[in-house]
């Protein structure tokens, strides 16, 4: 609502390098580490849409929390760092520093998984918007909020309603309206559509894409459903067992997946018109408390070689590909 970094047309730069974040958890009286984010690096410059895709439990939500500097005594950053540069200001999250909190809502916002069910049930929507504005020292102007609601295609009278009176899709729009109210230039959205039906999901995805394009912001979108990514994201990162195993332009990954896990992931998506029996990925997901040595995918990989079980492959550029892709797999060395 105030003049923002967006209007200044600053270039956003997000740089994650070797991020490592573990949970501490108790198992039968013994404290153990859950190695949920392991050595994650990526780099985004300017207004981009990045999707992070992976199976349930692979560490996506944990990565989202780390990227937002949303860590506590239970989840800690063990190594690496994430830096944000908004032209005029720099912020970072690392094992020793967390300055990102100062940028929350105004420069970077976060839509946590399941947040459409987390709206305060006893407050009217108007008050929810009011609270957000007040807590950031921004004057609450109802007309502006109504205009903002129009952008997410909500009628103004919903301000008089309670969250439970709205459908899931409308609540998700409210959440998006809140996240974008103060015009942040980076938005992290964790599974924003997985609780919605396909029709509503498609509308919400279109909305997110149009916000990203119109506001020239940077989106980090997290999902377990790889079929949502085309038409939405410019870049994608495939996550497996806490690690990024493939990274590149969406088109490149879809037309020529490199990592064996990515290939499996793409082959399990059912489509209308195809009744041939699909094969699930053999074996079971990584236990992040006791991950396998070497490549974390090797126990399930049909191409595994000796080295795969011994040494973890780093994410390196793939020269054979005309696209700028990176893959973490010994087959491409």
């Amino acid at each position: 609502m105030s003049k923002t970094s967006l209007d200044l047309q600053t270039t956003v730069h997000v740089e994650a390098s070797n991020l490592k974040a573990y949970y501490l958890t108790e198992q039968q009286g013994v404290m153990k580490e859950v190695k949920a984010v392991e050595d994650v690096s990526f780099d985004i410059e300017g207004s981009k849409f990045l999707a992070i895709v992976g199976e349930s439990g692979c560490g996506k939500t944990t990565l989202a929390k780390v990227l937002y500097g949303f860590v506590n005594s239970n989840l800690s950053i063990i190594g690496g760092r994430i830096c944000y540069s908004f032209g005029d200001a720099q912020y970072e999250v690392s094992p020793t520093a967390n300055t990102l909190k100062d940028a929350w809502w105004k420069k970077i916002s976060y839509v946590p998984q399941g947040s459409l069910s987390a709206l305060n049930p006893v407050r009217k929507l108007k008050d929810i918007f009011l609270d957000l504005a007040n807590s950031h020292g921004v004057p609450f102007q109802e007309e502006k909020v109504k205009n903002h609601l129009k952008m997410v295609k909500l009628p103004p009278y919903i301000l008089r309603m309670y969250p439970f009176e709205l459908s899931g899709g409308m609540r998700q729009r409210v959440v998006i309206a809140l996240a974008t109210l103060l015009h942040p230039s980076v938005i992290i959205a964790d599974e924003p559509t997985s609780a919605l039906d396909v029709v509503t999901q498609r509308d919400i995805l279109r909305l997110l894409k149009s916000i990203q394009v119109d506001a020239k912001s940077t989106f980090i979108f997290i999902t377990h459903d790889i079929s949502l990514v085309p038409d939405l994201a410019d870049f994608m990162a495939i996550m497996y067992g806490g690690c990024i195993v493939e990274y590149g332009p969406t088109e490149a990954i879809f037309s020529r997946p490199l990592h064996p896990y990515t290939k499996f992931l793409l082959s399990t998506v059912p489509t209308i018109g195809d009744k041939t029996e699909k094969q699930p990925i053999p074996g079971s997901p990584v236990n992040l408390i006791d991950p396998p040595p070497g490549c974390r995918f090797h126990p399930r990989c049909p191409y595994g070689e000796k080295i795969c079980a011994e040494q973890r492959p780093g994410l390196v550029e793939n020269k054979a590909n005309s696209w700028e892709c990176r893959v973490a797999c010994w087959l491409y060395r």
Binding site: K150, K153, L154, P155, S167, G169, M170, R173, V198, V199, Q201, R202, D203, R206, D225, I226, S227, L228, V229, P230, D231, F254, L266, V269, T271, I272
Partner: peptide
Amino acid sequence: ALLKESVPNPYKKQGESRFEEREEQILE
């Protein structure tokens, strides 16, 4: 047809929809 069109299909470009998005959401 709307339900079918809404299914994400990674191998097909979305293209134009026959269903225009409404300016305001309809309550159930």
